[in-house]
Protein backbone atom coordinates (compact mmCIF):
# COMPACT_ATOMS: atom_id res chain seq x y z
CA UNK A 1 0.00 0.00 0.00
CA UNK A 2 2.79 2.34 0.95
CA UNK A 3 4.60 1.53 -2.28
CA UNK A 4 1.51 2.19 -4.28
CA UNK A 5 1.05 5.70 -2.94
CA UNK A 6 4.59 6.57 -3.88
CA UNK A 7 4.44 5.33 -7.46
CA UNK A 8 1.06 6.83 -8.28
CA UNK A 9 1.77 10.35 -7.07
CA UNK A 10 0.13 12.13 -9.98
CA UNK A 11 1.89 14.81 -11.94
CA UNK A 12 -0.39 17.79 -12.49
CA UNK A 13 -1.91 17.40 -15.95
CA UNK A 14 -0.41 20.00 -18.24
CA UNK A 15 -3.17 21.70 -20.16
CA UNK A 16 -2.74 24.75 -22.38
CA UNK A 17 -4.18 27.86 -20.82
CA UNK A 18 -6.35 30.14 -22.90
CA UNK A 19 -7.04 32.89 -20.41
CA UNK A 20 -5.48 34.19 -17.28
CA UNK A 21 -7.08 35.14 -14.02
CA UNK A 22 -6.08 38.76 -14.35
CA UNK A 23 -7.62 39.05 -17.81
CA UNK A 24 -10.89 37.52 -16.60
CA UNK A 25 -10.83 39.88 -13.71
CA UNK A 26 -10.27 42.90 -15.89
CA UNK A 27 -13.29 42.04 -17.99
CA UNK A 28 -15.41 41.42 -14.92
CA UNK A 29 -14.37 44.81 -13.61
CA UNK A 30 -15.19 46.53 -16.90
CA UNK A 31 -18.64 45.06 -16.91
CA UNK A 32 -19.28 45.93 -13.30
CA UNK A 33 -18.21 49.53 -13.92
CA UNK A 34 -20.42 49.70 -16.97
CA UNK A 35 -23.49 48.56 -15.09
CA UNK A 36 -22.68 50.56 -12.00
CA UNK A 37 -22.44 53.69 -14.12
CA UNK A 38 -25.74 52.85 -15.80
CA UNK A 39 -27.33 52.38 -12.39
CA UNK A 40 -25.86 55.55 -10.99
CA UNK A 41 -27.12 57.61 -13.94
CA UNK A 42 -30.55 56.02 -13.72
CA UNK A 43 -30.96 56.58 -10.00
CA UNK A 44 -29.15 59.89 -9.63
CA UNK A 45 -30.90 61.75 -12.46
CA UNK A 46 -34.12 62.49 -10.52
CA UNK A 47 -32.41 63.87 -7.39
CA UNK A 48 -30.05 65.95 -9.52
CA UNK A 49 -32.97 67.32 -11.48
CA UNK A 50 -34.73 68.05 -8.18
CA UNK A 51 -31.69 69.84 -6.85
CA UNK A 52 -31.28 71.92 -9.98
CA UNK A 53 -34.94 72.87 -9.97
CA UNK A 54 -34.93 73.70 -6.27
CA UNK A 55 -32.34 76.41 -6.92
CA UNK A 56 -34.52 78.21 -9.51
CA UNK A 57 -37.13 80.87 -9.16
CA UNK A 58 -40.64 80.10 -10.41
CA UNK A 59 -40.03 82.39 -13.37
CA UNK A 60 -36.93 80.52 -14.43
CA UNK A 61 -38.65 77.14 -14.01
CA UNK A 62 -41.44 78.12 -16.39
CA UNK A 63 -39.07 79.80 -18.86
CA UNK A 64 -38.23 77.92 -22.04
CA UNK A 65 -34.51 77.47 -21.43
CA UNK A 66 -32.23 74.50 -20.73
CA UNK A 67 -33.88 72.89 -17.66
CA UNK A 68 -30.60 71.19 -16.60
CA UNK A 69 -28.79 74.43 -15.87
CA UNK A 70 -29.37 77.15 -13.30
CA UNK A 71 -28.79 80.58 -14.81
CA UNK A 72 -29.89 82.57 -11.82
CA UNK A 73 -29.41 80.44 -8.65
CA UNK A 74 -31.48 81.41 -5.62
CA UNK A 75 -31.96 79.95 -2.15
CA UNK A 76 -35.38 81.54 -1.84
CA UNK A 77 -37.20 78.19 -2.04
CA UNK A 78 -35.22 76.81 0.89
CA UNK A 79 -35.48 79.99 2.92
CA UNK A 80 -39.19 80.15 2.21
CA UNK A 81 -39.74 76.63 3.50
CA UNK A 82 -37.47 76.84 6.51
CA UNK A 83 -39.11 80.04 7.72
CA UNK A 84 -42.56 78.62 7.15
CA UNK A 85 -44.12 77.27 10.38
CA UNK A 86 -46.34 74.90 8.45
CA UNK A 87 -43.38 73.14 6.83
CA UNK A 88 -41.60 72.91 10.18
CA UNK A 89 -44.73 71.35 11.71
CA UNK A 90 -44.75 68.69 9.00
CA UNK A 91 -41.11 68.02 9.67
CA UNK A 92 -41.62 67.78 13.42
CA UNK A 93 -44.66 65.48 13.01
CA UNK A 94 -42.67 63.18 10.75
CA UNK A 95 -39.70 63.16 13.09
CA UNK A 96 -41.74 62.46 16.21
CA UNK A 97 -43.70 59.72 14.53
CA UNK A 98 -40.56 58.06 13.14
CA UNK A 99 -38.67 58.12 16.40
CA UNK A 100 -41.61 56.71 18.33
CA UNK A 101 -42.37 54.08 15.71
CA UNK A 102 -38.75 52.93 15.55
CA UNK A 103 -38.59 52.68 19.34
CA UNK A 104 -41.87 50.80 19.63
CA UNK A 105 -41.02 48.53 16.70
CA UNK A 106 -37.63 47.55 18.02
CA UNK A 107 -38.91 46.95 21.52
CA UNK A 108 -41.64 44.66 20.27
CA UNK A 109 -39.84 42.87 17.46
CA UNK A 110 -36.55 42.12 19.25
CA UNK A 111 -38.34 40.52 22.17
CA UNK A 112 -40.81 38.74 19.89
CA UNK A 113 -38.02 37.46 17.65
CA UNK A 114 -36.07 36.18 20.64
CA UNK A 115 -39.08 34.29 21.90
CA UNK A 116 -39.89 32.87 18.48
CA UNK A 117 -36.30 31.95 17.66
CA UNK A 118 -35.29 30.45 20.96
CA UNK A 119 -38.09 29.54 23.29
CA UNK A 120 -39.63 26.44 21.84
CA UNK A 121 -43.24 26.67 22.89
CA UNK A 122 -46.37 25.19 21.44
CA UNK A 123 -47.10 26.84 18.10
CA UNK A 124 -43.95 28.96 17.99
CA UNK A 125 -43.07 27.86 14.46
CA UNK A 126 -46.58 28.58 13.16
CA UNK A 127 -46.55 31.93 14.89
CA UNK A 128 -43.24 32.84 13.26
CA UNK A 129 -44.67 32.10 9.82
CA UNK A 130 -47.84 33.97 10.72
CA UNK A 131 -45.85 37.04 11.64
CA UNK A 132 -44.30 37.08 8.20
CA UNK A 133 -47.59 36.47 6.41
CA UNK A 134 -49.10 39.59 7.99
CA UNK A 135 -46.32 41.56 6.33
CA UNK A 136 -47.41 40.27 2.93
CA UNK A 137 -50.87 41.85 3.19
CA UNK A 138 -50.79 45.09 1.19
CA UNK A 139 -51.53 48.21 3.18
CA UNK A 140 -53.98 49.38 0.55
CA UNK A 141 -56.26 46.54 1.63
CA UNK A 142 -56.09 47.64 5.23
CA UNK A 143 -57.16 51.24 5.32
CA UNK A 144 -60.85 50.62 4.78
CA UNK A 145 -61.05 48.13 7.67
CA UNK A 146 -59.00 50.64 9.65
CA UNK A 147 -61.62 53.35 9.00
CA UNK A 148 -64.20 50.96 10.43
CA UNK A 149 -62.05 50.20 13.45
CA UNK A 150 -61.46 53.89 14.12
CA UNK A 151 -65.20 54.51 13.98
CA UNK A 152 -65.74 51.67 16.41
CA UNK A 153 -63.10 53.00 18.79
CA UNK A 154 -64.77 56.40 18.61
CA UNK A 155 -68.20 54.92 19.33
CA UNK A 156 -67.03 52.67 22.14
CA UNK A 157 -64.36 54.67 23.94
CA UNK A 158 -65.03 58.16 22.65
CA UNK A 159 -61.46 58.44 21.40
CA UNK A 160 -61.19 60.10 18.01
CA UNK A 161 -58.32 58.53 16.09
CA UNK A 162 -59.06 60.26 12.82
CA UNK A 163 -57.07 63.31 11.87
CA UNK A 164 -54.36 63.07 14.52
CA UNK A 165 -50.68 62.71 13.68
CA UNK A 166 -50.12 60.47 16.71
CA UNK A 167 -52.52 57.90 15.31
CA UNK A 168 -49.68 57.05 12.94
CA UNK A 169 -47.63 55.92 15.92
CA UNK A 170 -50.20 53.20 16.49
CA UNK A 171 -50.63 52.44 12.79
CA UNK A 172 -47.10 52.20 11.42
CA UNK A 173 -45.92 49.38 13.72
CA UNK A 174 -48.43 47.13 11.95
CA UNK A 175 -46.21 47.62 8.89
CA UNK A 176 -42.80 47.56 10.59
CA UNK A 177 -43.11 45.00 13.39
CA UNK A 178 -43.72 41.91 11.23
CA UNK A 179 -40.80 42.53 8.92
CA UNK A 180 -38.40 43.60 11.67
CA UNK A 181 -39.39 40.57 13.72
CA UNK A 182 -38.67 38.45 10.69
CA UNK A 183 -35.23 39.98 10.19
CA UNK A 184 -34.40 39.54 13.87
CA UNK A 185 -35.59 35.92 13.92
CA UNK A 186 -33.12 35.26 11.11
CA UNK A 187 -30.25 36.89 12.97
CA UNK A 188 -31.09 35.25 16.28
CA UNK A 189 -31.45 31.85 14.64
CA UNK A 190 -27.92 32.16 13.26
CA UNK A 191 -26.50 32.44 16.78
CA UNK A 192 -25.25 29.01 17.83
CA UNK A 193 -27.49 27.34 20.36
CA UNK A 194 -24.49 26.64 22.58
CA UNK A 195 -24.14 30.35 23.20
CA UNK A 196 -27.40 30.65 25.10
CA UNK A 197 -26.76 27.32 26.76
CA UNK A 198 -23.44 28.65 28.00
CA UNK A 199 -25.21 31.76 29.24
CA UNK A 200 -27.87 29.63 30.90
CA UNK A 201 -25.19 27.64 32.73
CA UNK A 202 -23.41 30.88 33.61
CA UNK A 203 -26.59 31.85 35.40
CA UNK A 204 -28.13 34.31 32.96
CA UNK A 205 -31.91 34.69 32.91
CA UNK A 206 -33.71 34.77 29.58
CA UNK A 207 -33.79 38.53 29.77
CA UNK A 208 -30.07 38.76 30.50
CA UNK A 209 -29.33 36.33 27.69
CA UNK A 210 -31.25 38.63 25.38
CA UNK A 211 -29.71 41.90 26.51
CA UNK A 212 -26.16 40.77 27.24
CA UNK A 213 -25.64 38.15 24.53
CA UNK A 214 -28.21 38.23 21.75
CA UNK A 215 -28.59 41.96 21.20
CA UNK A 216 -24.84 42.70 21.10
CA UNK A 217 -24.13 39.71 18.88
CA UNK A 218 -26.99 40.46 16.49
CA UNK A 219 -26.26 44.20 16.39
CA UNK A 220 -25.88 44.33 12.58
CA UNK A 221 -29.34 42.82 12.26
CA UNK A 222 -30.70 45.22 14.83
CA UNK A 223 -29.37 48.14 12.83
CA UNK A 224 -30.74 46.77 9.58
CA UNK A 225 -34.15 46.46 11.22
CA UNK A 226 -33.90 49.97 12.66
CA UNK A 227 -33.08 51.42 9.25
CA UNK A 228 -36.00 49.57 7.75
CA UNK A 229 -38.44 50.76 10.42
CA UNK A 230 -37.24 54.35 10.08
CA UNK A 231 -37.47 54.32 6.29
CA UNK A 232 -40.98 52.91 6.33
CA UNK A 233 -42.29 55.39 8.85
CA UNK A 234 -40.49 58.40 7.38
CA UNK A 235 -41.69 57.69 3.85
CA UNK A 236 -45.17 56.41 4.66
CA UNK A 237 -47.68 58.20 2.44
CA UNK A 238 -50.91 56.27 2.16
CA UNK A 239 -52.02 56.12 5.79
CA UNK A 240 -51.38 59.77 6.64
CA UNK A 241 -53.04 60.78 3.37
CA UNK A 242 -56.09 58.74 4.27
CA UNK A 243 -56.31 59.49 7.97
CA UNK A 244 -55.14 63.09 8.43
CA UNK A 245 -56.48 66.24 6.86
CA UNK A 246 -55.81 69.27 9.09
CA UNK A 247 -52.64 71.09 8.12
CA UNK A 248 -51.11 70.85 11.59
CA UNK A 249 -51.60 67.07 11.67
CA UNK A 250 -49.87 66.33 8.35
CA UNK A 251 -46.55 64.57 7.89
CA UNK A 252 -43.88 65.75 5.50
CA UNK A 253 -44.62 63.71 2.34
CA UNK A 254 -48.34 64.47 2.48
CA UNK A 255 -47.85 68.05 3.68
CA UNK A 256 -45.60 68.96 0.76
CA UNK A 257 -48.06 67.91 -1.90
CA UNK A 258 -51.19 69.22 -0.19
CA UNK A 259 -49.91 72.68 0.72
CA UNK A 260 -47.55 73.40 -2.15
CA UNK A 261 -49.96 72.35 -4.87
CA UNK A 262 -52.76 74.85 -4.87
CA UNK A 263 -55.38 73.71 -7.30
CA UNK A 264 -53.54 73.42 -10.57
CA UNK A 265 -50.71 75.67 -9.48
CA UNK A 266 -47.57 73.65 -8.76
CA UNK A 267 -44.94 75.46 -6.73
CA UNK A 268 -42.22 73.33 -8.27
CA UNK A 269 -39.23 75.06 -6.71
CA UNK A 270 -40.54 74.66 -3.18
CA UNK A 271 -41.82 71.13 -3.83
CA UNK A 272 -38.33 70.09 -4.92
CA UNK A 273 -36.63 71.89 -2.06
CA UNK A 274 -39.07 70.32 0.42
CA UNK A 275 -38.55 66.85 -0.99
CA UNK A 276 -34.78 67.23 -0.79
CA UNK A 277 -34.95 68.51 2.79
CA UNK A 278 -37.23 65.58 3.60
CA UNK A 279 -34.71 63.14 2.14
CA UNK A 280 -31.90 64.52 4.26
CA UNK A 281 -32.62 62.79 7.61
CA UNK A 282 -32.68 59.24 6.16
CA UNK A 283 -29.51 60.01 4.22
CA UNK A 284 -27.74 61.21 7.34
CA UNK A 285 -28.92 58.20 9.31
CA UNK A 286 -27.84 55.79 6.58
CA UNK A 287 -24.46 57.41 6.32
CA UNK A 288 -23.95 57.17 10.06
CA UNK A 289 -25.39 53.71 10.67
CA UNK A 290 -23.99 52.12 7.51
CA UNK A 291 -20.45 52.55 8.80
CA UNK A 292 -21.47 50.96 12.01
CA UNK A 293 -23.41 48.28 10.19
CA UNK A 294 -20.46 47.32 8.01
CA UNK A 295 -18.11 47.41 10.99
CA UNK A 296 -20.48 45.02 12.71
CA UNK A 297 -20.48 42.71 9.74
CA UNK A 298 -16.73 42.58 9.37
CA UNK A 299 -16.33 41.87 13.07
CA UNK A 300 -17.78 38.44 12.24
CA UNK A 301 -19.95 38.79 15.28
CA UNK A 302 -21.84 35.56 14.99
CA UNK A 303 -18.92 33.17 14.83
CA UNK A 304 -17.50 32.12 18.17
Amino acid sequence: MADATITTSPGAPTRPRYGSMSRDRRWALRWSYFFLTLFAIFFLTPPIYMFVTSLKSSAEISAEINPWWVFDPTLSNYIGLLTDNVFLTFFLNSALISVCVVTITMMISVVAAFALARMKFWGSATLATGVFLTYLIPETLLFIPLFKMFAWVNDTFGIQLMNHWWTMIILYPTLTVPFCTWIMIGYFASIPKELDEAALIDGATWFQTLTKIFIPVALPGLIAATIFAFTVSWAQFLYPLAFTTSTKELVLPVGIITTLIKGDVFNWGQIMAGALLGAAPPLIIYAFLMDYYIAGLTAGATKG
Binding site: A198, A204, L219, G304
Partner: peptide, 18 residues
Protein backbone atom coordinates in the same frame (compact mmCIF):
# COMPACT_ATOMS: atom_id res chain seq x y z
CA UNK B 1 -28.54 24.48 35.06
CA UNK B 2 -27.28 27.55 36.89
CA UNK B 3 -28.16 26.06 40.26
CA UNK B 4 -26.51 22.71 39.61
CA UNK B 5 -23.07 24.19 40.13
CA UNK B 6 -21.62 22.71 36.95
CA UNK B 7 -19.56 24.18 34.15
CA UNK B 8 -19.63 23.00 30.58
CA UNK B 9 -17.15 23.21 27.72
CA UNK B 10 -18.74 22.89 24.30
CA UNK B 11 -17.33 21.50 21.08
CA UNK B 12 -17.56 24.88 19.32
CA UNK B 13 -16.33 26.61 22.51
CA UNK B 14 -19.42 28.88 22.64
CA UNK B 15 -17.37 31.90 23.64
CA UNK B 16 -19.33 35.15 23.71
CA UNK B 17 -18.02 36.78 20.51
CA UNK B 18 -18.50 40.40 21.62
Amino acid sequence: PKDRDIAMVFQNYALYPH
